[in-house]
């Protein structure tokens, strides 16, 4: 189903349809993450990917024209690059241990300690939260700073343009 939606997104020329299909893709992705028992990530995907992104994309569509421009370039080189990258990624997965094996490397390093000591050390039963906010606090601080920077950047860009537009209008009126 994910593949079907992806092909539909590529074929769709009308951008409103693309936004709706992207939302469907996000919800499907959230379902996949729930099947993989990653409920925290699924929740984020559903709220950010399907919720806020859709709203912001629709707001953007309100500002620009809603039909994708037809491309004039040849399509051979992008196809080669895409197939090449995909082949490299598939080749990379061949070296991974089989899905769900308990003795894979990622389950041997610090993971077991986090899982077994989370209640003893932090009193928080949800290991995802304790890893996110305590054991890996630096990373989350970085993520929060990234969101902060993104917000400031978008606000500066959009409002700066608006102010310039307004002064030009004012100059024309006088």
């Amino acid at each position: 189903m994910l593949a079907v939606v992806t092909v539909a997104i590529v074929l769709q020329r009308h951008l409103f349809g693309v936004v709706v299909l992207t939302t469907i893709y996000s919800f499907l992705m959230a379902s996949v993450l729930i099947v993989l028992d990653a409920v925290d990530v699924a929740m984020t995907e559903a709220s950010v990917g399907a919720g806020i992104s859709t709203v912001i994309l629709l707001a953007t569509l309100h500002l620009i024209s809603t039909t994708e421009m037809r491309s004039f370039r040849t399509k051979v080189l992008p196809l080669v690059v895409a197939i090449g990258t995909g082949a490299l990624l598939v080749w990379g997965t061949l070296a991974l241990p089989p899905f769900g094996t308990a003795d894979a490397i990622i389950h041997k390093h610090v993971g077991p300690r986090y899982l077994s000591d989370t209640i003893k050390e932090t009193g928080v039963p949800n290991a995802v939260t304790s890893v996110l906010a305590d054991y890996r606090g630096y990373d989350t601080l970085g993520e929060t700073t990234v969101i902060f920077t993104a917000g400031i950047g978008v606000m500066l860009l959009l409002r700066g343009m608006r102010r310039r537009g307004r002064t030009e209008e004012g100059g024309d009126g006088q």
């Binding site: 806020i52 709203v55 912001i56 707001a59 953007t60 309100h62 500002l63 929060t144 969101i147 902060f148 993104a150 917000g151 978008v154 606000m155 959009l158 409002r159 343009m161 608006r162």
Partner: peptide, 18 residues
Amino acid sequence: VTVAGTMTAIFYAFVERG
């Protein structure tokens, strides 16, 4: 606080532009 503020501010910025 940061996420709620950022998302709302971005949304306001887009709506005001429109």
